[in-house]
């Protein structure tokens, strides 16, 4: 996983709440068996509308998404994160993220910054007043900056550390291989297995 310390890029204002993962990447694109190549699926239905924010020239190259509350609800598809990343997004800012989406993002290096809705409204106004303006997501200092505005954002210490170091989760867990062995040795005998009869 690539390290993330701070990123500055063009931000797009997505004035919608409950952006579910079926909107971020429709199910049709989930039939692929590869890990990359999902850029065309990113907001595929909404991008058919010429008025959609990412179709506006100023936001076409956006790499930071500023969205309404409850971003990433619905399905557990990690393809939603891959689609956003393949499209070019490095960070999403919202007042509330769905749990599974947020967890998936942390696994693959997409930063999800929680900023209060008041702050989101401020960002939307700044961006719309000056389309193409850059927004900085500074993970090290846990702040979002846009022009003269600096907003704190929430992310837990452990996830922040892992993202900044770009560490592989499986490797970290395997440090506990002995503890896993010990746990398996003391599991009750009545627990089921999936083996046939």
């Amino acid at each position: 996983m690539e390290k993330f310390v701070s990123f500055t890029g063009v931000a797009a204002p997505l004035r919608r709440s409950n952006v579910d993962t079926d909107q971020i990447v429709p199910a049709e694109y989930l039939k692929r068996v590869t890990r990359t190549g999902f850029a065309d699926g990113c907001f595929a239905s909404w991008r058919k509308d010429p008025g959609f924010v990412l179709n506006q020239p100023a936001y076409r190259e956006a790499q930071v998404l500023v969205a309404g509350p409850d971003f990433g609800t619905g399905s557990s598809r990690e393809h939603a994160v891959w689609a956003l990343q393949d499209y070019g997004f490095k960070a999403v800012i919202s007042s509330r993220f769905a749990d599974i989406f947020r967890g998936n993002s942390a696994k693959t290096g997409l930063v999800t910054a929680i900023v209060e809705q008041d702050g989101i409204e401020q960002l939307w106004k700044l961006i719309e007043a000056n389309p193409g303006v850059a927004v900085t997501v500074d993970l090290e200092h846990r702040v979002v900056r846009c022009e003269s505005v600096t907003l704190p954002f929430e992310i837990d210490d452990y996830t922040r550390w892992r993202l900044m170091e770009g560490l592989d989760d499986i490797g970290l867990s395997l440090r506990h291989a002995d503890a896993i062995d010990a746990y398996e040795a003391r599991r009750p005998a009545f627990k089921p297995t999936t083996l046939a009869g």
């Binding site: 393809h79 967890g103 998936n104 989760d169 499986i170 867990s173 896993i180």
Partner: peptide, 21 residues
């Protein structure tokens, strides 16, 4: 019982565990 993403699927396949907050 809860849903997980593909990175976590790989994690469980490899370790039969998950790190959870």
């Amino acid at each position: 019982a809860f849903g997980i993403g593909t990175s976590e699927v790989e994690h469980v396949l490899a370790t039969q565990t998950l790190p959870l907050k």
